[in-house]
């Protein structure tokens, strides 16, 4: 019995160790009063539209094209097109939380659950607004340059790594039990939105560069 429990205990121990290292370098004790007011921003309040050249790698198949991201009072719209104008997919992320994220169109050959779920998950993370509720944790790294906001949203743990000075988000991650981790790296901000993005989850990756 004891022998059978040993691997299980080790597994738990490793899990705890992993958990404690997840936000290595970040701690609440580095947070100063001024920084507490910093808020993570991906798309600024005045953001309306952006065009990106796009490399989409989906289960080993590479597709290139143009992605348009548009914001209006109803929410965020995303569409990816081929260079020749053919639409691959179109997604909608409503501003209203009570409405579900939506695939408005997806080309038949891409219309497979792992692909559509991956697209919704990645772009959903990109447009995820930060939440400041009782579950939110606010940490800071030793340098004082990067803040980390950790949210619990619908059984997901969403982390916003962002500049303490500008609020520009540098990295987003989303973890959910038994689901592949979703990650987004962002850089090259200008005109209130990122110039370069790398979104990846399991066998789906999307590289966006501002046009």
């Amino acid at each position: 019995m004891r022998a059978a429990l040993l691997p299980f205990s080790l597994f738990i121990l490793l899990g705890l160790l992993f958990n404690s290292c997840r936000f290595s370098g970040y701690s609440a004790r580095y947070v100063s009063g001024d920084v507490k007011n910093s808020r993570p921003v991906v798309f600024g309040q005045d953001f309306e539209k952006a065009l990106y050249s796009t490399d989409l790698n989906v289960f080993g198949r590479q597709i290139t094209g143009i992605t348009v991201i548009k914001h209006d009072s109803t929410g965020f719209h995303v569409a990816m097109l081929s260079e020749l104008g053919l639409k691959y997919f179109e997604l909608f992320f409503p501003a209203n939380d009570s409405t579900a994220d939506e695939i408005r169109y997806v080309m038949e050959v891409m219309n497979h659950k792992p692909v559509t779920e991956g697209l919704l998950s990645l772009y959903g993370l990109l447009f995820q607004p930060p939440v400041y509720d009782s579950h939110a944790r606010f940490l800071m790294n030793e340098t004082g340059k990067t803040c980390l906001l950790i949210n619990k949203i619908e059984k997901k743990q969403v982390s916003f790594y962002f500049s303490s000075l500008s609020g520009e988000v540098e990295e987003l991650t989303s973890k959910k039990l038994l689901k592949p981790k979703a990650e987004i790296k962002l850089s090259g901000y200008g005109d209130g939105y990122p110039g370069s993005l790398l979104l990846f989850q399991h066998k789906l990756s999307i590289q966006l560069k501002r046009l």
């Binding site: 539209k49 065009l51 348009v68 719209h77 097109l81 104008g85 639409k87 179109e90």
Partner: peptide
Amino acid sequence: YLDMLQDVL
């Protein structure tokens, strides 16, 4: 022309 976006690229 993208109907949903009401936009022309």
